[in-house]
Design a binder for these strands. Sequence first.
DNA 1: GATTTAAGATGATATTCATCATCTTTTTAT
DNA 2: ATAAAAAGATGATGAATATCATCTTAAATC
Lengths: 192, 192
Amino acid sequence: MARVSREEKQRTHAAIVATAARLFREHGLAGVGVADVMSAAGLTHGGFYRHFASKDALIAAAFAQAVEEATAALAAADGAAARQAALLRYVDVYLSREHVDRPSTGCPLAALGGEARHAAPETADAAAAGMDRAIARVARCLPAGQARLTKARCLMSLLVGAITIARLSRDATDREAILAAAREDALRIVAP
Amino acid sequence: MARVSREEKQRTHAAIVATAARLFREHGLAGVGVADVMSAAGLTHGGFYRHFASKDALIAAAFAQAVEEATAALAAADGAAARQAALLRYVDVYLSREHVDRPSTGCPLAALGGEARHAAPETADAAAAGMDRAIARVARCLPAGQARLTKARCLMSLLVGAITIARLSRDATDREAILAAAREDALRIVAP
DNA sequence: GATTTAAGATGATATTCATCATCTTTTTAT
DNA sequence: ATAAAAAGATGATGAATATCATCTTAAATC
């Protein structure tokens, strides 16, 4: 192909990031190459560096994008009741079998949080910022008070850990039990 | 060098596993090569396949070994009081700044749990078995009762998630706050 | 409309790394 | 003691892959 318009380039850029966000969450940072992302986005590898300075820059963008999407509903909720409802739904979706089975569209902290620290500083920074953002958005949906942030930190830890552990299990019944246990505990934090 | 005795080979084998367990936890599964492990163990890469059929086989062995070590104190505790004390200490060490700062000697679930699922089935199996074992050993140190396993699953989720998140943070104060929040929540489970 | 610019394609390059082949030397087996 | 086996060393090999160079063609700019 050849040169495309500015708008088209923006679309391409967004497609690369979206594809990367999906693939990285599914196969891990080391499990996906630049060429994999590009071809999954319907492009060839060569054009990549017109969009990103490095694979790490792509990872950083993909991570941020994934956090944004995964927590958008929390940020959109308006009013105390809507916020609590959004958080309850967030926990419910988070601790679902679907989330365990499909990392590609799930929380990037659970999917990539462990490996992010091995990436370039640029990527680690993006991961840190994403984590902060996720916790802040969870905190925003908790009842106001000084324990808000503390509760959000606990809740996020519980959620990330539960999915990490559930994904390790090879037994469907165990996976379900892990989710159920975490759900119960999470509700104690969210709806006391 | 040349051929060594059976005992010497066993020592070499153990050294390779121990070195791998340390390096993998520190740099991730993809961040450490077979040659890295061997040279860190004071050997050359060539002899590796006298000990393991593949890198994945090494990862599986290293993971199992790391779980064993990380939970040995829990398994060794004898008597109700000793078990509770061992668990309290386990939580305390787990949620410490040192654990955040030094993945190389810490919990392999927190360090590698996220990437283990991208490895060969052999490795994923070892990770699953290690996870089961860790949870069982935690459960064993909780007060008897049918909620034992449920509590152990919650606690392990909280611990793994808290370390994962704390390691992502670039801010020492935040890291400390995450640990403190998780500690408080963990104690609620362990010492109700 | 002519000129310049750059998006994306095609095709290197260079490096990393898992695995294999072979050699040496010492242990084990006979 | 002699022969066979194998642990570990040295040195390929082949595949994967991040990045760069160059080409083509259409969009921007004049």
